[in-house]
Design a protein around this nucleic acid. Structure first.
Lengths: 193, 193
DNA sequence: AACAAAACCTACCGCTCTACAGGTAACGCG
DNA sequence: CGCGTTACCTGTAGAGCGGTAGGTTTTGTT
C-alpha cells in the first residue's frame, strides 16, 4: 500500500502537469507564446499563477514541456512511413485546428531573435527533412517519377504542409487543406485516388 | 516660396513617417508585433515613445502603416506576371531576410485570436490565390501539364513560398530557398508520367 | 501521533507596456 | 512681428508581466 500510494502521488502530479501543458497549448493557440501569460494558463486549470510556478519554475520551462509533449504524440515519422500516410496525417490535422494553431503560432514567433523555441524548430525541421528524404528514397529510389531527388523533394513536402496550414487557419472555408495536399502528392508521382 | 515651404514641411513629415515605418519593420522582425515596443521603434529613429505617438496615435495605427507599406513595394502580382518571374521574386527575397522575417513573424502571429493583422492576411491571401490562378491560367490554360487546374495549383504555389521561407529563416545554411522553389516550378511545368 | 514533503496560497517587487495630459520650442505664414 | 500649427518633450496613469519570499494547508510515511 505504501508503495502504491507513492505511485498515486506521482501519477496525480504528472496528471496535473499534463493538465497545465494542455491549458498552455490552448492559451498559446489563442495568444501566441509571448502573448500567453502564466496567469491565463493557471486560471484555466484552477490555479493561481504562483501555484503554476510550483510545477514549472519559469515560463520557458513550461514551453519546453509543451514542445516535448508535441514530440510525444506528433512523433517524427520514421523510415517505415509511407508517403500516402502523410495524407492521412494532414486529414487528421484538419480536425485539430487548435493544435495546428498552437504550433503555427510558435513557428512564426520562433523566427524572431532569441526566441526560446527557435533551436527546437531548427533542429526539428532538419530532422524532419532528413527523415522525409529517407521515406521518399525508400519509396521511389534515388529519383522520383517527376525527376527530383528525395533530398530536393523533402523541403518542398514540408513547406507545402506548413504553408497550407497557415492559409487554412486564416480562411478554413476557402482552403481545402487535405485536398490540396493530396494534389501535391499527386504531383510527386504518387497515385492518389 | 510659401507654397514650396508647405510642400517641404509635408515632405519632411512624410519622410519621418517612412523612417518610423522602416524602424518598425526592423523591430517587428526582431521581436514580432506583440514583442515590439513603441519605445524600441522610437529609439531607432531618435524619438521618444511619445514623440512617435505624434505620428501614429496607436500601436495598431503603426501596424496598419507597416502593412500598407508592404502592399506598396510588394504589390500583388497582376495578370501579366509570368510564372518564371516568381523564381526571380524568391531569389530577390533571399537577399532581404529582414523583410521576409518581418512578415513571416506577422503571419505566424496573425493566426492567433483577435490579432490586428489577421483580416489583412486573410484578404491578402485570398487575393494572391485568385491572381495566381489567373497567372497560371494565362500561361497554361485550364490544365497544367501535370494535370492540375490553376485553381488547385495556386494554393500550393503560395504554400511552397511561405513554407520555404520559414525553413530558410530557421536554417539558411541548410535550405536553398530559391533552388527549392525552382524545383517546384519545374514540377508544375513538366508533365508527370 | 509525529513529522516531512508536496501542493498551493498571499503578498509583493521591479519592470515594461500603451496611452493620455499638458507643456514648450521651432517653424512658416499673413 | 504676431500667431497658429507642427513637432516634439516630460510626467504619469494604469495595467500586466514574470518571478521571489515565505507562509499554510494537505497528504503520505513511519
Amino acid at each position: 500500500m505504501s508503495y502504491g500510494d507513492v505511485m498515486n502521488a506521482r501519477v496525480r502530479s504528472e496528471e496535473r502537469r499534463a493538465e497545465i501543458v494542455g491549458a498552455a497549448l490552448e492559451v498559446i493557440a489563442e495568444r501566441g507564446y509571448r502573448g500567453a501569460s502564466l496567469a491565463a494558463v493557471a486560471e484555466r486549470v484552477g490555479l493561481t499563477q504562483q501555484g503554476l510556478l510550483h510545477y514549472f519554475p519559469t515560463k520557458d520551462a513550461l514551453l519546453v514541456a509543451v514542445l516535448q509533449e508535441r514530440d510525444r504524440w506528433d512523433a517524427v515519422p520514421d523510415t517505415r512511413w509511407r508517403v500516402d500516410l502523410l495524407a492521412s496525417l494532414v486529414e487528421y490535422n484538419a480536425m485539430r485546428p487548435a493544435i495546428i494553431q498552437t504550433f503555427s503560432a510558435l513557428l512564426g514567433e520562433s523566427v524572431t531573435e532569441g526566441h526560446p523555441a527557435r533551436s527546437y524548430f531548427t533542429q526539428r525541421y532538419a530532422q524532419v527533412r532528413a527523415t522525409m528524404t529517407e521515406v521518399l528514397r525508400a519509396e521511389y529510389g534515388d529519383r522520383l517519377p517527376n525527376g527530383l531527388t528525395p533530398e530536393h523533394t523533402a523541403p518542398l513536402l514540408v513547406a507545402v504542409m506548413d504553408g497550407l496550414q497557415y492559409q487554412w487557419l486564416l480562411d478554413p472555408e476557402s482552403v481545402d487543406m487535405p485536398g490540396a495536399f493530396r494534389d501535391f502528392l499527386r504531383l510527386l508521382g504518387e497515385p492518389v485516388e
